[in-house]
Every structure is written in structure tokens, then in C-alpha cells.
Simulated scan of single mutants.
Amino acid sequence: MNRTIGLAHLSALHLSPPELVQAAANAGFTSVGIRVYPATKGESTYRMAVGSTMFVHTLDRLGGTGVAVRDVEVFTLNGNRGRAEWEPVLEAGAALGASVLNVIGSDPDGGRLRDSLAALVEDARAFGIRPSVEPISYQPLATVPAAGLLVQQTGCGIMLDVLHFVRAGGRIAELEHLPAGAVTVIQLCDGPADTPDLPVPRAMPLGQDVNGSPRQIESRSKRLAPGEGVFPLGEILDLFPDTPISVEVPDVLAVEAHGTFAHLQHLYEAAATLTRTSLKTETK
């Protein structure tokens, strides 16, 4: 197995997009996912509208490092958002060179979610972007089978977050029955068999809200690097040998204790070891 390794923004969300690109390049990653739209209520926002100062600086870093943008995040379909909200996100994603938009299904009305997603998929085609739903264990769209049905109904893709796949009780057989090409990105991390009882960090990057929920605290503040837990990572990677990897391992306390570079270098080396990719011969 020999594939490139990308970095999800959540692994270092305290870094602005241009800082993230540079840090990813320094640690060995060849692509990044960039947050251009807030994920949680009250979250601070990186000003990434096309043409903004931060956007221009991000393009400069991308050009200088050779790092690519795989996906942009995160657009939540909650029943109230439509074209007026998603069009600027698609514009930013296209200008960054992204091919995937991360979509969260928080609308409890399944029919409305399907219809909104279908409209988003149709609009995104003009931008060369495939909206890809991420099943999240504490959201209305929680499971891989539910996401697979949306793939069939709308033509969307799936961003497979391994943590949420496991926490939702996912089984490998569910992945085997997905339509061909459904999984656009694997968000790679590891963890213990059960959701741990973790303290809420003193400060969350961008002021993210965890609501005191153990699953949200784990998801946003403390995951394990690939190979350090019990998740069936090898089986998942073997099922999707050509699917890009995005390492998504936030660890707020580790960053505070050891610094961002040490954290990201550890993540890259762990992912490279897992995928049996040579650190010297990996190519973009």
C-alpha cells in the first residue's frame, strides 16, 4: 500500500489556513483539509472568502510548499441553510483547488436533508467539487448505511471518519456494501474500544463547543494517532486502497505540552507506518 497522506484541519485547528499549510509541509504531509466555514455554534471563523487577505496568503503558502487542498469544511445542512450559504463555500473550495466539501447532516427531517443535499450536489458540479457527507455518531446522520443511501439518492460522496464509524457501532460489512467510489476521503485516527471519560480542555481551538458530551469531547479534543488504539484501521484501508487519507487527530493537551510541530510530526510518522509508506520515497 503506497499512498499520500493528508492532514485534516481539526488536527491543528488553532493554526490559520496559511499556517496550517506550512506546518503540514514541514511535517511531511502532501495535502490538507481547510476549514472555511464554522462547524459549531459560536465558533470563531477564519476569514477565507475568495480574495480576502488570509485567502491570498493561503494560496501563496500552497504555491510555495507544493501542498494541495483535498477538501474544505465544514458545511452543516440543518434545514435552514441553502444556496446563499453554500455558494461562497463552494467558490472558496474551487479557488483553493479542493475536490471535496465536507457535509454534516444535522437536519432531523430525512426527506428535507436528502433534498437539500441533492441541490448542493447539483450546484457543486459547476465548481468541480463533490459534497461528501460525514456520518457523525451524535448527529441525525450518524451511520454509514444511512450515508450510503444518500449516495444512491443524490450522488454525494462519503467522508469516512473512523472515530465516528466505530462510535456509531459500524461494522466492516457496512463498508463492503457501499457503492463503488462512494468514499472520497478517509479521516484517519485511532482510539480505545469505548468512549473515554475525558475532561473538557480549558480552552478549545476557535472556541469550539463540546456541550459536555463525552463523544464530542473525544471527537474535538482528544483522539489517538493511527496505530495507538484498537480501531480496525488496517481492514478499512485495505478495503479502500486508492482512497486519500486525511489524518484527523486533535489532541489539545499534547499540543500544549509538546508544541504543534511535534504533534504533527508524530501524526505523520504514525500514519506512514500504518500505511507502510516509506518516509523517504513517498511521492505526491
Rank of each mutant, 00 (worst) to 15 (best):
3 R>A: 12
5 I>L: 15
14 H>I: 10
14 H>F: 12
19 E>T: 04
20 L>E: 02
28 G>P: 08
29 F>V: 06
30 T>C: 13
32 V>K: 01
32 V>N: 05
35 R>F: 07
35 R>D: 13
36 V>E: 02
38 P>I: 06
49 A>V: 04
49 A>L: 10
50 V>M: 08
50 V>E: 04
51 G>R: 06
51 G>C: 11
54 M>L: 15
60 D>L: 08
61 R>W: 00
63 G>E: 13
65 T>V: 06
66 G>P: 11
66 G>A: 11
71 D>V: 07
72 V>M: 02
72 V>L: 04
72 V>I: 14
73 E>S: 12
75 F>E: 03
82 G>E: 00
86 W>R: 05
86 W>C: 07
91 E>Q: 14
92 A>P: 00
93 G>W: 00
95 A>R: 15
98 A>I: 11
98 A>P: 00
99 S>P: 08
102 N>C: 14
102 N>E: 06
106 S>F: 01
109 D>G: 01
109 D>F: 00
111 G>A: 13
120 L>S: 01
123 D>C: 00
124 A>Q: 03
125 R>M: 12
127 F>S: 13
128 G>S: 08
128 G>N: 11
133 V>M: 02
134 E>F: 01
134 E>M: 08
135 P>D: 08
136 I>V: 15
140 P>G: 01
144 V>L: 04
149 L>Y: 07
149 L>Q: 15
150 L>I: 05
153 Q>N: 10
154 T>V: 04
163 L>S: 08
164 H>Y: 03
167 R>H: 11
168 A>T: 07
172 I>N: 04
172 I>A: 03
172 I>C: 09
176 E>T: 14
187 Q>S: 12
192 P>I: 10
197 D>G: 08
199 P>S: 10
200 V>I: 15
206 L>T: 14
207 G>P: 11
213 S>M: 12
216 Q>K: 11
218 E>V: 07
224 L>E: 04
225 A>N: 09
226 P>K: 05
226 P>N: 10
229 G>K: 02
233 L>Y: 00
237 L>E: 01
241 P>S: 06
246 S>T: 10
253 L>T: 14
253 L>D: 14
254 A>F: 10
265 Q>V: 09
272 A>T: 06
273 T>E: 13
274 L>W: 03
275 T>D: 08
276 R>M: 06
279 L>E: 11
